[in-house]
Structures are given as structure tokens and as C-alpha cells.
Design a protein around this nucleic acid. Structure first.
Lengths: 185, 185
DNA sequence: TTGTTATCAGACATGATGTTCTATACCAAA
DNA sequence: TTTGGTATAGAACATCATGTCTGATAACAA
């Protein structure tokens, strides 16, 4: 019953400018060095206007990533059935296409919140796949919880390494390595 | 030629109190919420005294972890030869013994600097072990760089998960799982 | 056109940072 | 034990980012 009224055009413009400012500043100087002052300067928005929409810097980041990264990861989940457990190939391709942004969000000086969001998504995916499986529990006694965490963390680590090192292999190659390294699971 | 004079007793006491204050505050409220004000209050040290020894909060953290965490990881490296590639069992045991501290430094809201230091140490270890190996390159074509990164990140992820979940298995069990999951490498 | 509402500009209190100063207490070495 | 050197305490200070609040103005939807 949430009465969804279309937001005022001014609100859309303001949020758009703040989102753009956030993205460009993340690539430019890294998230943690951004101040609210930077954001409103870059977006050319009044101080009170910012606080009318968001409570903190993190608040803006979260509502922004919900629109961007999360939607893209859902897209990745569609292509999971094609043999492998994780949608790794799709992810390598997608992150490679937007490597400037994802490198700034995942790499050495990344954004914890975003990393956690992606990890959480990967973990959920791995868990659900492993649970609905023609049980290979005769081969291993390792709990699903551990195996899923391993799959998710490995993929995230490999993605991060790949971006940090400026993608030294094509998505298909690095994906095969991931499949090989985790074939135990 | 660095003339190493033993530091003044007052200096030792001051640094000791700041280190103690840092450790207790990390466990209490998490590193990123600590302010310099907190530190000098807890350590009961003058403001100017802090800045006489350290430039920033991170500065204190780094010189502290160099004494603590790094030395312990070196200890872990000794026991590597015993069959496995990584000193994983030693690490699970050591971190389990100091889980309060390590959970605060690695877990959900961890300290990036410390995480990177440990990851870097693990990566260096994995690399050197894989390099001096009776080459199993007939079995895999994956570059050492990738395999080492995989081993290090997997172990760090498992360690972190284990601490975050309050060590649901004894060190020996979780270590066996790690060995099983990474036996490809 | 009209009533509503988002925005702006600015002022303001707050809290943390990092610098600088002087007097004092402590220290190591003679 | 005295002495010269030095670390510390305490406080003041400028700076900066934060978050709140005000009234005036502009843009909006209807």
C-alpha cells in the first residue's frame, strides 16, 4: 500500500546530480576521501538540500548502489544454469566492461559497503545452488555453509585481483582458472 | 649505521600506554570509530605528546601491528613444511587463541590496513612455496601468481568467516576443510 | 494563475584535528 | 647528588567538516 507518487522533477535532478558527483568522485579520489562538502560542490547543490534527501554519505552510496550494482548482479544470476555453479563468466565480463568503477569499488582501496553487498549476493547465490543439488555429499563432508562461503569468497577475491592487476587475462581465461581451482566444490 | 639508542623510559611508558589504549579501544568500539581524543583520554596522555610520536591514528596502528601481528605470523611460517602448503593449522590455532582481538581486526567491521598486511604475508608465503616446488605444471596451466593469490585469499576468507561465526568448529576441523577445498592447488 | 514545495544562501553550534607555546617533571650521565 | 637535556602536561589556537535551522526565492503540479 505504499502510495508511490512520482517524485518532483527538481528532486530527480538533485538526486541525479548527487549520484553523478558520487560516481565521478569515487573514481577520482576513492570513496573514503570524499566529504559531503566535495559532493555538494561537485553536484552544485545546497548544503541543506543534501541533508533533505540523505542523512550521511553512506546513505547516498547505498541508495545509489541499489540501483546500479544490485540490478546488474541479478542479471548475472540468469545465466547460472549453464553448467557451472557460479555466474562467474558473466561477472568477469560485466566487471571488465565497467572496470574503472569496479576497480575503485573493489580494489586495494575499495568500499567496504559495496564489497559486502556483492559478497552477500554471491553467497546467497552459492548457497541456493548448493542446496538444490543432486547431493554430492558422498564425496565430501564439508558443510554447505562452508562450501558456499568458500565459493563466494574465492570468486570475489579473484575478481578483485583481476581488476587490481588491470585484467591481465581475458574474461574467458580467468573464468576457466576459477572453475579449475574450485572444481573440488 | 642507524645509531640505535635505547629510548627514554618516559617514551617507553607513553608508547606502551598508547598501544594498550589502542588495543582495548579496538576491541571495544572498532578501529574506525576511534578518535585521537579517545586514545589520549584512555592512555591519559597529553595531546601534544601523542603528536610528538605519531602523525596520525594509522601511524600508531602500523607501528603497533609491526610488533604484534607480524611477529606472530613469522612464527607460523616455521611450521609450514609439515606436509601442507600453507601454515593454516598454526594460524587457526593462533587466531583462535586471540579471537577477541583478531575478530575485531578481520571480521565484518575490520581494519583494512591489518587485513592487507596479513594478506600480503600469506601471499608472499604461498608464492615462495609454490615457486620452490617439484613442479606440478603437468597437472595445471594456471600461473603461480593466480594460484598463490587463490590460496592466500581463500585462507584469509575462511579465517575471517571462522572468527565472525564464533569458531563453530575446532581449529583442526576447519583446517581439514581448507585443505580439502584447496587440494586442487 | 495559485498553492505547494524544493532549493538556496547563510548563519550557527559542535566536535575533531593538528600546531604551538611555556612551565614542569623526569631522566641519564657525570 | 647535582646538572644539563628532554619528554610531558596543559592550554590556547586556527582550521575544517558536520549537521541543523532560518527565511527568501524559484520551480513545480494542478
Amino acid at each position: 500500500m505504499t502510495n508511490e507518487r512520482p517524485p518532483d522533477r527538481r528532486v530527480r535532478r538533485t538526486k541525479q546530480r548527487l549520484n553523478d558527483a558520487l560516481e565521478s568522485l569515487i573514481i577520482e579520489k576513492g570513496y573514503d576521501k570524499i566529504t559531503v562538502q566535495d559532493l555538494i560542490d561537485r553536484a552544485d547543490v545546497g548544503r541543506s538540500t543534501f541533508y533533505a534527501h540523505y542523512e550521511t554519505k553512506d546513505d547516498l552510496l547505498i541508495s545509489w548502489t541499489e540501483l546500479a550494482a544490485d540490478m546488474e548482479l541479478h542479471m548475472a544470476q540468469e545465466q547460472t544454469d549453464a553448467g557451472s555453479t557460479m555466474p562467474s563468466l558473466t561477472l568477469f565480463r560485466h566487471l571488465g566492461e565497467h572496470h574503472h568503477l569496479y576497480k575503485a569499488m573493489l580494489g586495494g582501496r575499495g568500499i567496504d559497503i559495496v564489497t559486502e553487498m556483492i559478497h552477500s549476493t554471491l553467497l546467497g547465490h552459492a548457497t541456493s545452488v548448493l542446496e538444490r543439488r543432486p547431493d554430492a555429499s558422498d564425496q565430501t563432508t564439508i558443510p554447505i555453509e562452508v562450501r558456499a562461503g568458500f565459493l563466494a569468497s574465492s570468486l570475489l577475491a579473484l575478481l578483485t585481483w583481476w581488476l587490481d592487476n588491470d585484467m591481465p587475462y581475458p574474461p574467458e581465461s580467468i573464468n576457466e582458472m576459477y572453475q579449475e581451482l574450485t572444481k573440488t566444490t
